[in-house]
Design a binder for these strands. Structure first.
Lengths: 198, 198
DNA sequence: TGTTTTTTAATACACATGTATTATTAAGAA
DNA sequence: TTCTTAATAATACATGTGTATTAAAAAACA
């Protein structure tokens, strides 16, 4: 029987190499040769795991979403709305190096998804999932009467969603002007204003 | 004497062609050949106006910023804070086709500026100018005592800035889920909450 | 009309790219 | 150890790219 290597693990290793190239040189710098070199592998080897460049890119994008989802599923929710909301949002923002890498790579893929049909579906799906997640947070707050009386759940959801993503984009594109501590403080500031203490 | 053409006008025509290519195929689709073809011009002609591709890209990015600034400078401010804030923000969001084109192109350039030193400066400069603009709006509101007492001007500025840009990004990347009417409604919703009527 | 100068067009070249093909290597079971 | 098969490496090819060079065309003034 043949030499056995963990196929999925190898694909993740290559996708991680792709992430590094994206962060360093942008998505337009991701040639199959460069990713193979970054992974310390030959072109032919890469091709055993990804037959086309499109496959490599789609997998690399999907991996961002998967990693974030995996972390969120492992979170220790305690039933306190403010706490549970905070720990979810924390997984979505570039507050440490791991999350920062994901945010940078995700932004690059999101922009490309505008003109690449193969990536569009995942982009839309994740946007929808995030909206649904934020919506659940807001609905929970409303249900527990922890919000001001005059709020509109849908508007509040879209506002929170846009604020979080806006902060992520600002932090990724202008880290000198807005560091990770600061964006987290602004999220706290916002939550302070939509969650009332009764 | 030679044939006379308006040099600057020609450069804008080429930059507009570049915008169209960016919107259709992404920034990675912008080769000098494709832009020349899109402008109905030969490669050699393009080269008379932009010696390198970098020049073309830098000019095309700068033109986004210039166009928005020009519109803002022509606005009819009337001294009513809410009105004046609204008409400025309206120029920054993809509420019609012209502004939508600018938003899409600007986002593409912003992401590339992360890995392209020639574009980084403008990206940062515009981010700073926007922050300063939003800061002036908030300061004006505070000065006129139109805000709740417990607000923090810096935090409110960053919140508004991130919210606006977050909505722009959402509308550009997911127009099916969030159209221009909706993002404007959310801006209004936010302003309703930071501007009190006394 | 003829002259001058800019604009335009055409071609060339070196290089990077995605993909395909072929030979070589390595690992595990008989 | 030997054999089988997957994994790896090397090479090839057509295409698109940025840039440079050279020839042709067009326009305005004398």
């Amino acid at each position: 029987m043949p030499k056995i290597v963990n196929h999925d693990q190898r694909r993740e290793l290559l996708a991680e190499a792709a992430w590094r190239v994206i962060r360093r040189e942008g998505l337009e710098g991701v040639s199959v040769r460069r990713v193979a070199e970054e992974a310390g592998m030959s072109l032919g080897s890469l091709r055993h795991y990804f037959v086309t460049q499109s496959e490599l890119l789609a997998f690399s994008m999907q991996m961002v979403s998967d990693r974030v989802n995996q972390r969120i599923m492992k979170l220790a929710f305690n039933g306190n709305p403010r706490h549970d909301i905070e720990i979810v949002i924390r997984e979505l923002m570039p507050l440490d190096e791991e999350r920062r890498a994901e945010a940078e790579v995700w932004l690059a893929f999101s922009v490309r998804a505008q003109v690449d049909a193969a990536l569009k579906e995942l982009s839309q799906e994740v946007h929808g999932s995030l909206y649904d997640g934020f919506r659940k947070m807001i609905d929970m707050l409303v249900k527990m009467k922890l919000t001001p009386e005059d709020i509109d759940a849908e508007q509040e959801t879209k506002r929170l969603h846009a604020l979080v993503d806006g902060l992520v984009v600002h932090c990724v594109l202008n880290p000198e002007r807005l560091d990770s501590d600061e964006i987290w403080r602004i999220v706290m500031y916002h939550l302070d204003r939509i969650i009332v203490n009764r």
